[in-house]
Design a protein around this nucleic acid. Structure first.
Lengths: 338, 338
DNA sequence: TCCTGGCACTCATCCACTCCGAGTGCCAAT
DNA sequence: ATTGGCACTCGGAGTGGATGAGTGCCAGGA
């Protein structure tokens, strides 16, 4: 186990490096933090920390830089989440207030998070799979053409066109609509297949095929679109990386466009509490020099989706975590109000 | 007027520069293109072209680079739109075929365009303002709460929550729904306000307030959400710019996040035919070293939205224009099929 | 009049070389 | 365990010459 002072040295290294973006040496450390010991002592501590793999030297005659493992220790043991200032809190809530619909909530959240953290923000749309059905609407667009609209309790709307095998009368349609809604409104998506299973049987022969078609489209929508959506913002902040970044920024931008990758990343985050993945802890290759701070958000106690930021491993963890947590809470409140 | 050969020299310079990304000299030009004249002659022509402002030297002892004015001439007079290969056409159509809904169409289009042109793709969602109403649906969620769903002929769906001043019965709701639809289905958005103006009068006193509220929300939706949406992709391609690009890429990324800016940019493009804006022709400051190739697309003869790409002024104009045009056509077809 | 080859000139780029200093590791002394 | 001292390392910045692509200009030729 590392001594108290060595941990203090590690904390100082992380803080200085995050601030200056330059490897930090023993002398500078003793000057900027009052460690009450000489540079030589710090050097010994640094040697020990390096031995343990918490810090590294870019090249022989340079200062030290934290490793992924070093950041990990810092985040786990040495840092507290920094609460936001009152002004920031007020800014968040007033900025989110004005949203008119779900798209607007998400896009405002992304911009907010990107601005607050000065990093790339990622916000997942409230997930269909954990939502409940608020309403199913069926619209007759042509004799044998029906539009299916599915509305969730989070305000999300999905629509599908259904081509029916046979013309479908208005009365049958109304009938199906009513029965469908009475069965599944308020239910979780996972329950729906079971609940509608026997519906076709209760219809006339001529309509049965159409009813089946409509239902299977509904089920498809539930499954397919559980494939989640997300929104990204603040990519311009990537340019604050280093200077070396044709190589750095490119794979990150590519990874950000692969929404599947991001969704998996967010999915790995804990529903509650905050998850920080540092550098190589991220499975995806393009993101090995970035860290991801993610947290679930939801209207009630339960998370319906995740949000977070992606930034260089050299980031201000306490501040970022504070902003992410605060934004998640406010978004949850806004969603709950609908 | 410039002589035929000088135009030929300009064309050669543009082509070489686009290919190599390096200033092109007189000797290299005569070698790579069979101009049938000596380097010295080309030098004279270059001097003339520079005099006229079509090309410039980055520094004294370097080759020439086209200016915005040079690219403009190239695009207007010297280049043809390059048609796609059969394989590319097949790829486009098969890639777009599989789309399940409007979001999917747009997102596939973005990815396609980004891949084909290897640049940043921008696709505007089919505009509400030029669409017609396909259906309006009203759902009672609570005694005094109604959800308004608006469906357009392009497959776009907008929903709004309406808090009613008084409880609103199912029969009244059905009544309103029926009358509303019979009046405005198939009509253009611009016509709607006029068409629904006198609707509240035909309702009972107690419902009149609610009807007014619902209608004003509907009209708000039509106006507010004429504020268009768009999707962007292929930002990773920006890294192919030059090496100097912390400075270059940053303002571009920032501009791309300002959807308002992009929408104005696309808005300036002609509905039909293709619009190319080169370098400083773009009003926005961050985009003065990029070119925008945009074109309208739509299900019929009329454009319902625009799409395009953003790339360095040094881009392959014929190829880019070909890809943009082809994609726009295919997307139009896909939309028409719904 | 237009084209061409020749020639002197300009500079950006490359490379080898040196110098400087921040930072290190080790050791003996406290 | 801590500290001051000291030799050592090595990246980065600065210098200066060689290189060569590219230019402008001019005089001669078609």
């Amino acid at each position: 186990m590392l001594s108290e002072r060595r941990l203090e040295v590690l904390r100082a290294i992380v803080q200085d490096y995050v601030g200056t973006e330059e490897p930090v040496g023993s002398k500078a450390l003793t000057e900027r933090h009052n460690l009450q010991v000489s540079p030589a002592t710090v050097r010994n501590d640094m040697a020990a920390l390096e031995e343990e793999g918490y810090i590294a030297q870019p090249h022989t005659s340079a200062g030290r830089v934290p490793t992924d493992k070093g950041y990990r220790l810092f985040v786990d043991k040495l840092a507290d989440v920094k609460p936001l200032t009152g002004a920031e809190r007020r800014a968040i809530s007033s900025f989110l207030e004005g949203a008119v619909d779900l798209d607007d909530v998400v896009s405002r959240t992304v911009r907010l998070l990107a601005t607050l953290t000065r990093q790339v923000a990622v916000v997942q749309y409230p997930s269909l799979s954990r939502s409940t059905v608020r309403h199913v609407e069926l619209l007759s667009l042509a004799p044998a053409r029906v539009m299916l609209v599915l509305i969730t309790d989070t305000g999300r709307v999905e629509q599908r066109m259904v081509d029916c095998p046979a013309p479908f009368g208005e009365t049958s349609l109304a009938d199906l609509r009513a029965r469908l809604n009475s069965r599944i409104v308020g239910e979780r998506f996972a329950e729906v297949p079971r609940l509608v299973q026997d519906l076709p049987e209760s219809f006339d022969n001529e309509d049965r095929g159409t009813v089946s078609t409509v239902l299977s489209t509904l089920l498809e929508t539930l499954v397919e679109e559980t494939e989640e959506r997300l929104m990204i913002g603040g990519t311009a902040n990537l340019t604050r990386f280093g200077q070396d970044f044709p190589l750095t920024i490119r794979p990150v931008l590519e990874a950000l466009e692969e929404h599947v990758v991001l969704l998996r990343l967010l999915g790995e985050a804990k529903d509650t509490g905050m998850t920080v993945r540092i550098g190589h802890e991220n499975a995806h290759e393009g993101l090995t020099s970035t860290s991801v701070v993610a947290v679930g958000y939801g209207s009630g106690n339960e998370a319906v989706a995740k949000l977070g930021v992606v930034g260089p491993t050299r980031m201000d963890y306490p501040g970022t975590m504070g902003a992410v947590r605060a934004v998640a809470r406010y978004v949850g409140q806004i969603l709950a109000e609908n």
